[in-house]
Deep mutational scan, measured.
Amino acid sequence: MALNTPQITPTKKITVRAIGEELPRGDYQRCPQCDMLFSLPEINSHQSAYCPRCQAKIRDGRDWSLTRLAAMAFTMLLLMPFAWGEPLLHIWLLGIRIDANVMQGIWQMTKQGDAITGSMVFFCVIGAPLILVTSIAYLWFGNRLGMNLRPVLLMLERLKEWVMLDIYLVGIGVASIKVQDYAHIQAGVGLFSFVALVILTTVTLSHLNVEELWERFYPQRPATRRDEKLRVCLGCHFTGYPDQRGRCPRCHIPLRLRRRHSLQKCWAALLASIVLLLPANLLPISIIYLNGGRQEDTILSGIMSLASSNIAVAGIVFIASILVPFTKVIVMFTLLLSIHFKCQQGLRTRILLLRMVTWIGRWSMLDLFVISLTMSLINRDQILAFTMGPAAFYFGAAVILTILAVEWLDSRLLWDAHESGNARFDD
């Protein structure tokens, strides 16, 4: 018995066209964080690309023209004298008006014999932002004059995390709450300039795509075929072959399989920071003279006294001054041990922890910024005066060393310790 099946006739004509040209192939790229070699397709503007294995951002879609970056830099340069030299806060102490600005706080630190601690604050609040705007201006002028731009481009990517104007702005709020127990506070004209400078700096850093600047100024022929001998440069993120001198053909720094002496430098910085954190938390970090009496505060006791007036601000200072430094030390110690013992479990967790400490590390400088600003506000000789204690130097040095330890660690070593050939990683 035959089955009668109805015929289905399409209502619209289906047209099949042959592909007349070869589909576009992607360029081969190595991930600078996990060293995976993959094919990167062509990316349009405002599109980002991520590593298929570790999800690290390979290409950032946010990109401004150099002219727009230069305009932002010149605007920031105009704001800087007002943000640093004009009063941020006014207080009335014992019937006398006192003005506080950024430069005055750094000068008070240096004047009291601790120039190293003052230079830490100076670099993060004044030096690094000033280098940022002058570097962008150098790129703008240098591109037109045919100057060598490689050193500036190499420095810009590392400079971003040292620009800490946003953290200093939080420190202004913390210092205001600490001082309000002794005097009446009012915002100064410099505060508005400083807030504007923070906003412009944040926007500029978020749109400063150094890798795209490398592509514009020093374009290189990408690798179009897969080759395990391809290496990625950690300076400019170019994937290719080393030249005859073993250097990256684009930025001219040595092109090595792994960062040289990464573990040794990381261990040295980490152990030194552990040693410095002990006096930083045991010795007094601030000293207040009130009517001839002397009151010393460690980091913890200062947080407890701050909690009596504002528990939320005390929580912020606790996280930045105690929780973050010790968390960074514990995480980095764990990561280094996992590399030495070739741990194969929990790779995803370790990668996330490394990215976390990379982002939060700079916030530990908050305590030094609060001390710097408070020193310029309260300084009335023996009637009422505020000065920093010996722990300030140890704390600042420990924070900087932990930042350097994270920067010096080559994250690809975590993958080397893991089993080879993993296309995915999980716990």
Results as ranks from 00 to 15, higher is better:
I253Q: 09
I311E: 15
L366H: 01
A391S: 11
S321E: 00
L401K: 12
G26I: 13
L169K: 02
E296T: 12
L352W: 12
Q7C: 05
G315I: 14
L191M: 15
A417W: 12
T67K: 10
Y241A: 12
V163W: 02
L335V: 11
F194Y: 12
L132M: 07
I136M: 11
R294Y: 03
G389I: 00
L23C: 11
F333T: 12
H184N: 06
T134R: 00
R225N: 13
L78E: 01
A307M: 15
R247C: 12
G173N: 02
W92Y: 02
M388R: 04
I288M: 01
R221A: 14
C31Q: 00
L3V: 05
F123K: 01
I274A: 13
T201I: 11
I8T: 07
L414Q: 05
I126Q: 08
N310L: 05
V357H: 02
R348A: 13
G235E: 07
L159A: 04
I403W: 01
M332W: 06
L290G: 01
S65G: 09
H207G: 15
W214M: 15
E228W: 14
I287L: 11
P279D: 15
S48E: 14
V203P: 15
Y218D: 10
L213S: 14
I319N: 13
F141D: 00
S39W: 13
P242K: 12
S309I: 01
C54D: 03
G389H: 01
L93N: 01
I319D: 14
Q244C: 11
S305G: 12
D63V: 12
I303N: 08
L191R: 02
R59E: 05
P151R: 15
L271Y: 08
R25P: 08
D60M: 06
Q112K: 06
A83Q: 03
G361E: 05
L323G: 13
P32Y: 05
L37M: 10
F326Y: 04
F341M: 11
R216M: 08
K13A: 06
I339W: 10
Q108Y: 12
V189T: 15
K342P: 11
S308Q: 14
A83H: 02
C233E: 00
T298I: 10
R355F: 14
W408G: 06
T110Q: 15
T11F: 06
M304E: 14
L78N: 05
K160Y: 09
G171L: 00
V133S: 02
L94A: 01
L213H: 14
C251I: 00
S308D: 10
L306K: 00
R53K: 08
V121T: 06
W214H: 15
M155T: 07
G188A: 09
L94R: 00
L200I: 11
I303C: 15
A398H: 07
I185D: 01
T15L: 07
D427A: 04
L3A: 07
L149W: 02
H261G: 08
I319R: 02
L191H: 04
R258G: 07
T201K: 12
L323V: 11
L145F: 12
I136H: 07
S305Y: 05
I177M: 13
P81I: 04
C51Y: 00
G235Y: 05
R216G: 12
R221I: 14
C236K: 00
N310S: 13
D35I: 02
L200H: 15
R226L: 14
A71D: 01
G235I: 03
R256E: 13
I167Q: 03
A18L: 07
R247N: 11
R216K: 13
P10S: 06
I126D: 10
H90A: 10
P242T: 09
V370H: 00
C54S: 00
R216P: 06
P81Q: 08
V399E: 01
D381V: 01
I172Y: 02
A320C: 15
V357T: 10
Y138F: 13
W214G: 15
